[in-house]
Design a protein around this nucleic acid. Structure first.
Lengths: 116, 116
DNA sequence: TGGACATATCGCAACATTCCGATATAATGT
DNA sequence: ACATTATATCGGAATGTTGCGATATGTCCA
């Protein structure tokens, strides 16, 4: 007779995986949610190549400037970007070094023939 | 006098970036949203190493089985997993090959000392 | 100083996500 | 046939996200 405690167990033994820090999973999920928007992905893509102002990003992404500003604020709170004020403009640029590998991953999956 | 059409432009010239397929951005965002949940990240992490049943995944993730089932359905719709019925159990396993690089990225950022 | 410009913030409506309990389906063992 | 087990689905409450118009703040220039 099979022990009740093992009722859900697979017949095959499995490699033990770390019980994993719930904290780290939560942070990872938050970062992914922050990236998970077409406009924000595009912004990261642009900012990985150069610095841009809010207005430039808004124009490229086809959104109003206040909307662009909110997306940028979200990503800044997550540590993705830093901003620098120059006159009445604000330049954003990438601060999180892992974003490059992340975007590589995404572009590799969704834009197989991207001649940057 | 500065041309109106260039009002938002940066003083420095920028590398031309592809105007980018809005379709691809939308799909990428959808995939990221699908991954952007602590339980789902953990499930991907587990399934990258072995196959698991719904009950096993639910137990490891600390959620009810119907909740686990819903997370799995989401990811299956996105093409992340396939499932295989064996008796009254359903085994899930990874179907999307890019998930491995993606998780590498995430683990590298959030679990620097992960001895898998 | 006054007006145009660039960005940020606020309140709000529309919409999406998450989780739960209840119920359904289907396979198993007695 | 019947109870049990494993998974899936449904309806709904709570919560989160997005985009918009209006408004605020700060900068530039005439």
């Amino acid at each position: 007779m099979i022990d009740k405690a093992q009722a859900l167990e697979d017949s095959r033994p499995k490699r033990r995986l770390l019980p994993v820090d719930a904290e780290a999973l939560g942070q990872a999920a938050e970062c992914l949610r922050t990236l998970a928007h077409p406009v924000r992905i595009r912004m990261v893509q642009l900012l990985l190549h150069d610095r841009y102002t809010v207005g430039e990003l808004a124009k490229d992404c086809g959104v109003l400037e206040n909307v662009a500003s909110e997306h940028l604020r979200l990503m800044q709170r997550c540590g993705f970007f830093t901003s620098e004020k120059v006159g009445r403009r604000v330049y954003y640029k990438v601060a999180e070094p892992h974003l490059e590998r992340m975007l590589d991953c995404i572009e590799n999956r969704f834009q197989p023939c991207a001649a940057s």
